[in-house]
Design a protein around this nucleic acid. Sequence first.
RNA 1: GGCGAGUUCGUCUAGUCGGCCUAGGACGUCAGGUUUUCAUCCUGAAGAUCAGGAGUUCGAAUCUCCUACUCGCUACCA
Length: 507
Amino acid sequence: MNPRVRFAPSPTGPLHIGGVRTALYNYLFAKKNNGTLLLRIEDTDQTRFVPGAEQYIIEAFQWLGIPFDEGVGIGGDYGPYRQSERKALYKPYAEQLVADGWAYYAFDTPEMLDAKRKEAESQKKTFQYDVHTRMQMCNSLTLSEEEVQTRLQRGDAFVVRFKYPENTDIHVHDLIRGEVVINSNLLDDKVLYKSDGMPTYHLANIVDDHLMKITHVIRGEEWLPSAPLHVMLYKAFGWEAPQFAHLPLLLKPDGNGKLSKRDGDRLGFPVFPLQWIDPKSGETSSGYRESGYLPEAVINMLALLGWNPGNDQEMMSLETLTELFSIEKISKAGAKFSLDKAKWFNHEYIQLKSAEELAPYMIPVLKKNGVECDIHYLQNVIDLVKDRLNFINDFWDQACYFFVAPTEYDPQAVKKRWKEGMGDILQEVMKLIESFVPYDQQKAHDAVMQYIADHELNMGQVLNSLRLAIVGAARGPELFTMIGVVGVQEVRNRLDKAIQTIEGVRS
RNA sequence: GGCGAGUUCGUCUAGUCGGCCUAGGACGUCAGGUUUUCAUCCUGAAGAUCAGGAGUUCGAAUCUCCUACUCGCUACCA
């Protein structure tokens, strides 16, 4: 049977990069095995719902190039795929569990539970609603049948809690961690169905995974502690449980904690695929897309954070990753996010792209700086500077002088290169360059070199001074190539201006 | 506190069921080289006694046990 896997985010905000990796692994696993990947939105917590989050999630995966086969925004035979739209479906399952003795109604109010917790705390203990305490609480196990019915009919608030069997070892077989065993006496009777008529994650998850014929649950390690509950639920329903794989966590670059929303802007890298503006606070969180990352680079980097192909290969397209992916090679320990490595990946992926492919990315960068230009000119410039780009957004910093003449000249470079009388020398050099019409890079180069040799000039000073006039600093690509791209006439203009500015100040 | 998981260079990791590991690669770092400049690029170097301890064994990063530390969970959140 072909596997069916799901990515099931909660629309409580922007999609975390750790979530992206979880989705990616699900995708890779599905594709590798000719399976199906579906997107389910788990919006059972109405209090945490954030408008726009769902759309954000869909857009993020579009940008990343991770397509879903089924689910919200796509459709499919197992919908609806939004849990809020499946609300009515869960209650009978909760009731069935109660009827079968796997769960019970609990009428304890939040205040009562709070009091219990405080009381336990004062004795330096922790209150847990479990096999040891449930008979002291207000529920269908302790109340009479009539009382329970009365309360239910009266419309009293209630929740449904899972009733763990006593002293039973629960085995979770995890594809990454192997056998995990825990005794039921240690577990608390989790709420399955809330008083607001919504299921909790646990119930909705199991019911939907079953109904949607999910074969493999690949999710974050934070779910490992509740996995025993989930296997018990499958047992209680008499359903075959899917295979579980709990992924290692993505850790923050400094310290050891889980990578969180705050870390991104604190450490200078995005934690979200796309920029996100919080609808309530208006606070902006940066995204990979807006920071100038290529989706291919983000995917490659993420794939290697907790997985490897078993050899030294690092550069891998989504297709290659799919080919090579296997759950067995997923590591157990959490992985720290590394900005340097992310930067390196992005640099590599930019190099892989042609100027034609890169140009569409650069046009917005230019626009932001008030520049519009010919596409061929742009491509020429890209060819010249792309090997020095780590991010798309570096383009302006690395290439602005191709579009706007410099107005300032790096004083350090001026001091070092532009010696007395340089203006006159450059006038001569410029005349040589202008003598080739149309511009001939090789000939111009040779002529200038000859001139420098004949006059016993310092090559570094002459050429860098000319560069200074064009760029405004001691940087940039090969001089004569650059002159060809910028254009001789423009170089002439810039030189005149530079001489005027630099020597004007001097005299 | 309880429960669970994890622990190889600064970071990501390789290390198939013990020997080929005097622990390999990549990022980063450092040093050279290329270049008229900067960046790129190339070459090289430093860098983990495999968390610590005990055991099994002719032989352990690889098996067993103990300890330590880190993380996760411990909500009518997911």
